[in-house]
Design a protein around this nucleic acid. Structure first.
Lengths: 193, 193
DNA sequence: GTCTATAGCTTGATAGAC
DNA sequence: GTCTATCAAGCTATAGAC
């Protein structure tokens, strides 16, 4: 299955959004990195940058969710799952030279107060993550309302960890957050009995 | 003490960075909103956008730290302090129409992999926040190493909460995170004995 | 210190050949 | 579907009058 032009454009767009944000990524640059031309880009995304950004957020949001869910579901229990989650995030940061992190956060902050259409897309992506996380905590024996709260903190802590670790170019913040979060979930599961 | 031109420029710059990020904020727009001219802007910041951005990050980072520290220190104990922190953040989001949040996070994500000079400035700001938070947890009777871990999660959870709440235009995520964080710190303080 | 004017470049977007 | 050429508007930055 060879990569389609459209897929290559979305892929390059996601990579640039991670590293430079939406306003900092030019369409010409996206076209160049995806080995397409501006004409091709507008053929696949007639509404231009807005449409490309929306599709990129949806696609990479779903991919990122699949990745995290795979890590969570591979663990023997919810406590190990949370620990693996932060360990994986720290490893991803190190492996990518602290460049490749969340494909959505940077753009979400940029558009939250200035582009209602894209803001709604980021809201949908985060909501999907929260639901997936909530299900896993429920599967770990946590009461539904509390599961949603824990999932919210999990996503926030991961995003905050990416922020602090990228700024510091050091996995220490992400690892520290992972330790506290793991301890907390362990206590939460223990308290359930 | 009338506001100086320089201060007005930094203020307008901070407001625009919060809402549109670094790449999305033009110098002409910053000059217009601060009721200055481009010439004045370059008089006060000869190195242009980079210098203005660095000064803005430092100034608003310090102001934001003072705000949080004031909330933390006004509370009777560390558990109430953490609760007040998230309640205050939620209230600030609501009052500002979900536009005014963290003055540093958006820019930090934008420059982390593309502008080493500004990345270092954001790292310094976050490190200062972490130290201030660590001191408060130590004052609450927590062992130094653990205090640093808790402070890291506190900052990450606040930033993650801003992200999720701004995207959703809803204080629910910030409030949920505040509940879990407060419970966690309460357990942590209890476990100290 | 403040202002206007402008240079030089890049941006998002369009038109039309192939 | 892919390409090049081009437009108008925006950007950062500079020069020089006042």
């Amino acid at each position: 299955m060879p990569t389609s032009t459209r897929d290559r454009i979305i892929e390059a767009s996601a990579a640039l959004f991670m590293q430079r944000g939406l306003a900092g990524s030019g369409l010409k640059q996206i076209a160049a990195e995806s080995e397409a031309t501006i004409g091709s880009l507008y053929h696949w995304f007639p509404d231009g940058k807005d449409e490309l950004a929306a599709e990129t957020l949806r696609a990479s949001g779903a991919a990122y969710q699949a990745l995290v869910v795979a890590v969570l579901d591979a663990a023997p229990d919810i406590v190990a799952a949370v620990a693996d989650c932060f360990a994986g995030a720290a490893e991803a940061l190190r492996a990518g030279g602290f460049a490749d992190a969340c494909p959505v956060a940077t753009v979400a902050l940029e558009v939250a107060s200035s582009d209602e259409r894209l803001r709604l897309v980021t809201a949908e992506v985060f909501e999907s993550w929260l639901q997936a996380g909530t299900e896993r905590f429920e599967g770990g024996g946590i009461e539904p309302g509390r599961a949603r709260e824990l999932a919210t903190l999990l996503v926030a802590a991961l995003e905050g960890g990416f922020l602090l670790s990228r700024a510091a170019k050091d996995t220490a913040p992400m690892e520290a957050i992972g330790r506290v979060m793991t301890d907390m979930v362990r206590a939460e599961v223990g308290a359930r009995a």
